[in-house]
Write a protein that binds this DNA or RNA. Structure first.
Lengths: 208, 208
DNA sequence: CAGATCTTAATTGCACGCAATTCAGGAACT
DNA sequence: AGTTCCTGAATTGCGTGCAATTAAGATCTG
């Protein structure tokens, strides 16, 4: 019998996840320096997995590293990039949806609802960092459901670079936090009953 | 006085460049396993910079790595992804072009022509790997000219994942290799004399 | 003989140490 | 006073060794 029924993640993956959340939730501010030795002590590991984690996050666009000069939290790109990124996000997510729409099963809704439940709880207390986190988790789950690892990688490299805009949109476009939750529930409702075209529309409208 | 007037690249960067070219030029076939120790001996370095290089290339989509099981050259994704990626490439490259079009200077053409000269030489001897390499270099140079590092990263994460399609397109759409060169020269000619709209059209038509 | 299980060799993941590079602070010079 | 140069501390890049995990080969069983 396998002693570890759950997947054992490497130290690197755990650290990547941790720091990524710190950045996405705003616990680390733009331009903050990330010191390898300091992080190694904080996580109780050596510098090696830290270095690898920082490198991956740099590749994802969350961090910014110059040679021999450490890494910092990536600063926000020019606002103009929104005009490029938003349509691309729509393309990627609707492309993913189309690829698996006719194979959706009940378990999928269970999974997606688990995410939305967390979002609802966060909405009720106006916990915007968590709302944003679960919003990302929901859309990521859709892309991942396509089973095409390349799609998820493309999606991630796009979304993480415009996390600032992503975050601000939630404040600007929704008067009440719970409206964010409601809109996502509505999307799932269309998935349940509607045709593909309606589903694509519902998803696309949520991306702006 | 700086003893190294040229930028000294790190071992990692050199190895990344080397292996990336090996994959893009087809010296490494899909599914080929990359052994860290073997590569370390071949390059005459320790495993550390090799590991970091392999990780970065995995992030870029050229390699595919499972935990504790080494990395292999990424296999081609489903052909259907072309429908998604080609329009995205057009968006990214034309977006970049628009962002710097009115600040193009003579030195830019010098730089771009240097790339096209190499492409021409390769076309004359039907050296498709080099044609492809310089084709990528040309388009990458355009995106890089925008000065937005995020644009280049998005572009790379997209293009490298569909290198197979990219490569085959050159064989299918052009009877004579030199036509590939001619089309790129034509693009630069439009840049020199034409308006922005014509330039965007010329570039967009080259991406298919 | 097919299939499952155990054992062993090969490979990766991580820890640690040294050397090279960078950055900050102060002194010397214009 | 501002700029340049120099020096030292801090930090990153790389080399090396060990432990953990995996993959493959041999052995055993039905």
């Amino acid at each position: 019998m396998d002693p570890t029924p759950l997947i054992a993640f490497s130290l690197r993956d755990q650290i990547v996840e941790h720091i990524r959340n710190d950045v996405l939730r705003g616990r680390l501010a733009d331009g903050d320096r990330l010191n390898e030795t300091e992080l190694a002590e904080r996580f109780g590991v050596s510098r090696t997995p830290i270095r690898e984690a920082l490198q991956q996050l740099t590749c994802e666009g969350l961090l910014d590293g110059r040679r021999n000069a450490g890494v910092t939290v990536a600063r926000r790109p020019p606002d103009s990039i929104r005009e490029l990124v938003v349509p691309i996000r729509r393309s990627v997510e609707t492309f993913a949806l189309k690829s698996f729409y006719d194979t959706i099963v009940a378990d999928d809704f269970v999974h997606w609802n688990t995410i939305l439940d967390k979002m609802r709880t966060a909405c009720l207390v106006a916990d915007y960092p968590t709302i944003s986190e679960q919003d990302l988790a929901f859309h990521r789950a859709l892309v991942r459901r396509s089973g095409q690892i390349d799609l998820e990688a493309i999606w991630a490299s796009i979304v993480f670079r415009v996390r600032h805009h992503f975050w601000e949109t939630q404040h600007r476009n929704y008067a009440e936090p719970i409206a964010i939750y409601d809109e996502h529930v509505a999307i799932l409702n269309v998935f349940r009953e509607g045709d593909l075209e309606s589903a694509v529309d519902a998803l696309a409208k949520n991306i702006n």
